[in-house]
Design a binder for these strands. Structure first.
Length: 422
RNA sequence: GGAGAGGUGGCCGAGCGGUCUAAGGCGGCGGCUUGCUAAGCCGUUGGGGAGGGUAAAACCUCCCCCGUGGGUUCAAAUCCCACCCUCUCCGCCA
């Protein structure tokens, strides 16, 4: 949620931001009108309540003195009547106003390129040698099935499409990745957290996933709980309604969780393999920072995620998303894409965003300056990393002509073997 | 799932229909005193909103907030209803 100053005082900035993101400006008129109306109602209601308080106080005094209070009771009735009317309108207007305001996305940072869609994203850097194959590299699902470490048939039987069963060394490799990610980030100063993955709607509102992305999530109707689409949700709620002393910032967190996504609206896309599945594992990085430090911390977070891929020897590129391609809550986002030779394409393995104070305002998380002043903190999130895409990259980049897959050196202690053979 | 207890300011804790503008304590901050330290004394100390004020602050006025939402009343922390959360015990289960 944005600061209301953008609506009231810095309207041009807001309009430019919406335009650059490809949003229509139409709702702004309505929001603006609602804001003005609601303030009028607040003003009138406050006046009436003030009078009401006066009357009550005077009744108390007069009663004690044994005087007549008939005229006051009458006035009180009139005031009460008008107050009810005004309060009702106020409530209604207020509700509509905040509903609409909650749909307004974050303002992109000035360093974000203006653009329409992913074609306008900017490749910032690329790392690693793209391997030349002396045979036709296979897609990961073929490798995985051939090695007996991925089983899509059984997965479809128990859960339907877009699920995978990891077996044997496949299961071990998956677990190895999670542990390797967690261990590495922990050594870089992140506090490890294992949060709930079933959360209340308020938590999703705070992280910015509700109300806009209801369709993307699995909901437990009986208890009105949701399965998290990312650990960002849990980590963004870790300090909800808290005031953090500035000397405690920045706070670094890392969490492994399963993530659940309905993938509504992507029917028929990436249906094979584990590119796009309903349930996957992800290690998430999260930071709470002072506003003046968030962009430095953002760069550092990207590098923390990149380091993992360097250690694994997987070629990747860092992409700066343009205004039209960024997520709702983000002010600036870098994607890290890994090279998948079997698919002959780049796959997003991480998305690292600075949401500035957008979530902090929704979650009410502030910092206390040394002089006692309070400000909203800046919050950052980034995958570090999502396992399926890395799993794919390992299988496809490290595949050998005989169908075996070499395990990257840093993972060998975790997996227990150097090569997965047919 | 059953039974019970409880949710009040940063924390502890009183209050049970009208100076609650929430006692008192602890903590924090400022000061005084004290040759140091401990202690003592005085003062101060919540959040949100609307309006005014300012270059921006400071500041001023009013309103709301005692778990949440309703209700009763001229008047609610206090009475009534519903819900949420926490804790204890029992049952069931991983």
């Amino acid at each position: 949620m944005l600061d209301l100053k953008y609506l009231r005082e810095e309207r041009e900035k807001l309009e430019r931001a919406l335009k650059n993101r490809g949003y229509s400006l139409d709702i702004l008129e309505e929001i603006d009108a609602l804001d003005k109306a609601r303030r009028e109602y607040i003003k009138r209601a406050n006046e009436l309540r003030a009078r009401k308080n006066e009357i009550s106080k005077e009744i108390g005094l007069r009663k004690k003195a044994g005087e007549d209070i008939g005229d006051l009771l009458e006035e009180a009735k009139r005031v009460e009547e008008e107050l009810r009317e005004v309060e009702e309108k106020e409530k209604e207007t207020d509700k509509k106003f905040w509903e609409l305001w909650a749909y307004v996305p974050n303002i992109p940072h000035e360093s974000v390129p203006v653009g329409k869609d992913s074609n306008d994203n900017v490749i910032v850097r690329q790392w690693g040698e793209i391997r030349e194959f002396d045979f036709e590299p296979k897609p990961h699902w073929e490798i995985g099935e051939m090695l007996g470490i991925l089983d899509f048939e059984s997965a479809a039987k128990m859960s339907g499409s877009r699920f995978a069963v990891y077996k044997g060394l496949g299961a071990i490799l998956e677990r190895a990745l999670i542990n390797f990610f967690l261990d590495t980030h922990r050594k870089n100063g992140y506090i490890e957290v294992f949060p709930p993955i079933l959360v209340k709607p308020e938590s999703l509102f705070a992280s910015g996933h509700l109300p806009k992305f209801e369709e993307e999530m699995y909901r437990m109707e009986r208890d009105d709980m949701y399965l998290i689409p990312t650990a960002e949700v849990s980590l963004a709620n870790l300090h909800r309604d808290e005031v953090i002393p500035e000397e405690k910032l920045p706070l670094y967190y890392v969490a492994y969780t399963p993530c659940f996504r309905r993938e509504a609206g992507s029917y028929g896309r990436d249906v094979r393999g584990i590119i796009r599945v309903h349930q996957f594992n992800k290690v998430e990085l999260f930071k709470y920072t002072k506003p003046e430090e968030s962009y430095i911390e953002h760069e550092k977070m990207v590098q923390d995620a990149e380091r993992i891929l360097q250690m694994l020897g997987i070629p990747y590129r860092v992409v700066l998303l343009c205004t039209g391609d960024m997520g709702f809550a983000a002010a600036k986002t870098y994607d890290i894409e890994v090279w998948a030779p079997g698919l002959n394409r780049w796959l997003e393995a991480s998305s690292v965003s600075n949401v500035e104070d957008f979530q902090a305002r929704r979650a009410n998380i502030r910092l206390r300056r040394k002089d006692g002043r309070k400000e909203y903190v800046h919050m950052l999130n980034g995958s570090g990393l999502a396992t399926p895409r890395v799993f794919i990259a390992i299988l496809e980049n490290y595949q050998q002509k005989d169908g075996s897959v070499v395990i990257p050196e840093v993972l060998r202690d975790y997996v227990g073997v150097d090569v997965i053979r047919p």
